[in-house]
Each structure stands twice: as C-alpha cells, then as structure tokens.
C-alpha cells in the first residue's frame, strides 16, 4: 500500500526507455519514502516482461496481459489504471510524457480527482507548509517544471489528493541498472475484472511507425540552431557543419515554431533532453525550457551576437559574432586542423 507506481509502456514485449528511466527515478524516491516500487505493464504477450524491470529495482510488476490491450487505446488502459490505483492506493504514479502518457494521464487523474503535473524536469521529496490552513505536509512529491513558455520554473505539490501524478519526457531522467540480481514479484491481473467490452469503442485500423531519423539522444556532439539562425537556409549551413564534424542538429522551440526546423529536432522541456560531450548553440537565447534540455552537456559553446543572451552564462566558450559568419569559419578551420 501507498507505494510508487510507474506505468510502463510496452510494444512487442519491449519496455520503452522512458519507462525504465522512470523506474530508475522511482527506485530512488521509494528509498526516500521507505516504500516499494511497482510497475504496471498493460499489453499483449507479456510473459517474462518482469525480467526487463527487476534490474531497475522494481519490487512488484503488475501485469495485465490480453491481446486486446495492444496496441494502446485510451479507455482499456485507463480502466486498468483507475481500478488498480483504487485497490492499491499508491501515493505516487508516474508516466512518460509521451503520446501515450499524455493521453492516459489526464484521463486517469480526471477520474480519480488527483493532481497531474505534465512534463516535469525534476522530481524530489520534501515537506510543504500550508500557511493559510496551518497544516504541514510531510514527504510530498515536488513536481518541478518550467512554466509560462519556459520563462519561470515552478514547483507543484498535491497536498491532499492521491496519487500524486506526474509525467516526464524521455531522456530527462537517467536510466541506470540498480542490480542485475534484483528480484521482485509478479502480480497477474485478471483483465476481465478491470476492463469492460464498452472500453473497446475506439479501434486502431492502421499503424505506420518508423524509427526516428533524428538521433539527438545518442549523439556525442549536438549543434543547435535558435531563432537567431533566421531561416531554413540558415539551418542548411548547420547541417553542413554537422556532417563535417559528425554531429546531430537540434533546434530551439522558437526555431521550430518559426518553421526553421522540424519538431523532432526540438531540444528542451517539450522536446528532447540531451547530454552530449559537446553542445554548440547557434543563435539560441537560452530560455529556461531550452536549458532544461541541455544543461548537462559536458562542454557548451554559445555563438551569439547578443552578449547578454542568458545561455552565455552556462557556456564554456562564448563566441560573439554572427551565426552566418561563424559557421563557415568553423567548417574551414576544422578541415584545416584535421588535415
């Protein structure tokens, strides 16, 4: 009772990375709260799936295995989650801020009247004092996220409602095996007790899934263009530099909104989080929501003609100049020095 739940996404028997990242985080929170970490896996052909989860410190794997539960549709997964949460009363429930988690989470929170915070960039345990009602709450989940277009950072708590729910984007938390030998227990759920036939009113007729061509997370060098790049043509230069030095190209939200780059290249709170060896930001001002997605880069270079751009504060090197001038020079001198 009052454990931590992680809703685990599964496709073709494989647990999604974002879910393993959340289990890693969930383990740490469970240790602080002296409770157990439970995973919930809803899908089809799931036998043995618990073996993927135990190494991350999962104590209990709740499994709802039924051919009708994969691919994901909203209502059946919602029904399983709602009833399981009512039975088990977890204090915290975490989900990936993915197309699935962001479809499922609000539905579950609405049914349970529990608070849900989207796209958290950090989760911590702490106390909360409600000064107006003179009440002190121990060991709440601090749900921390940039807000208001990423200009401020907010700490959200759910003092009275349970579970405390939060979604987190892929890559924000680190995936770390606790122990190869960690073993928990499996709880197989009797699916017919949790879902109704009427939950299957929406059915998937066709699916075309492809592996993303953009691999920002796996690249050791990321070069990112911001609004200051000015155009799609400006980004073409960045792609040229990227192919020369072996980097992947990212973009700030402002650049994506302006149509300079595609959405799957967005770095930041509502995009991808990266931790490369080298991060070069071209014409990126450095809003909080962007910095949230790249501040753990080992080395940061900022190229900007605004000496007061906030990103400069966290940069190891600040090159004051125009993007269109600096990119060709970088290409030139990289080639010259590698000859």
């Amino acid at each position: 009772m009052n454990n931590i739940f992680v809703y685990c996404e599964v496709e073709g028997g494989v647990i999604a990375d974002v879910s393993l990242e959340l289990c890693t985080k969930g383990r740490k929170l469970a240790d602080q709260l002296h409770c157990q970490l439970e995973a919930v896996v809803i899908g089809a052909n799931l036998s043995g799936v618990e073996k993927q989860l135990y190494p991350y410190g999962v104590d209990v794997v709740n499994i709802a295995d039924d051919p009708r539960l994969e691919p994901y549709t909203t209502l059946p997964h919602t029904s399983v989650m709602i009833q399981l949460i009512r039975e088990e009363q977890p204090q915290i429930a975490l989900m990936g801020a993915t197309t699935i988690g962001r479809d499922l989470g609000p539905r579950v929170s609405s049914a349970l009247h529990s608070g849900l915070t989207a796209d958290c960039t950090s989760l911590e345990i702490g106390d909360h004092e409600d000064k107006k009602n003179e009440k002190v709450y121990k060991d709440l989940l601090y749900q921390i996220r940039p807000a208001f277009g990423g200009n401020i950072i907010a700490t959200i708590v759910n003092p009275d409602c349970r579970p405390q729910m939060a979604t987190v984007r892929e890559g924000v938390m680190k995936k770390e095996i606790l122990s190869k030998h960690y073993v928990g227990t499996v709880k197989n759920l009797e699916v017919s007790r949790y879902v109704n036939d009427s939950d299957f009113v929406v059915s998937v007729i066709e699916r075309h899934m492809e592996k993303s061509k953009v691999n920002l997370k796996g690249s050791s060098i990321v070069i990112t263009g911001g609004y200051g790049v000015g155009s799609r043509e400006g980004f073409d230069q960045l792609f040229e530099l990227a192919s020369v030095i072996g980097a992947e190209v990212g973009a700030s939200r402002a650049a994506v909104d302006a149509g300079f780059a595609d959405h799957d290249r967005q770095i930041g709170q509502t995009g991808v989080t990266v931790r490369p060896k080298l991060y070069i930001a071209f014409g990126v001002s450095g809003q909080v929501q962007h910095v949230a997605g790249m501040q753990e880069s080992s080395m940061i270079i900022s190229v900007n003609n605004d000496p007061k751009a906030p990103i400069n504060a966290i940069a190891d090197y600040v090159i004051q100049g125009d993007v269109n001038d600096v990119v060709p020079k970088m290409i030139k001198y990289y080639k010259k020095n590698t000859k």
Binding site: S109, H113, S114, G115, L116, T117, H128, D130, Y142, Q143, P146, A147, N151, I152, I153, A154, T155, I156, V157, N158, P159, D160, C161, G286, V288, V291, Q295, I300, S302, V303, P307, P310, N312, A313, I314, A315, D316, Y317, V318, I319, Q320, G321, D322, D325, V326, K329, Y333
Partner: peptide, 26 residues
Amino acid sequence: GSPTKVKKIENVVFQAKESMVMPATD
C-alpha cells in the same frame, strides 16, 4: 477544486560558469 498547488515560482538563475569570451575572428 484544484488538487495541484503552486508551491514556489522562481525566476531561474543559471549556475554561471566562468566563460571564455572571444570575438568571431579567424
């Protein structure tokens, strides 16, 4: 009727590093 409460709002100050600032010369 709102289960979520804003505990704290901060204007973020980045952990400033000692940056090496240079002009964009060859």
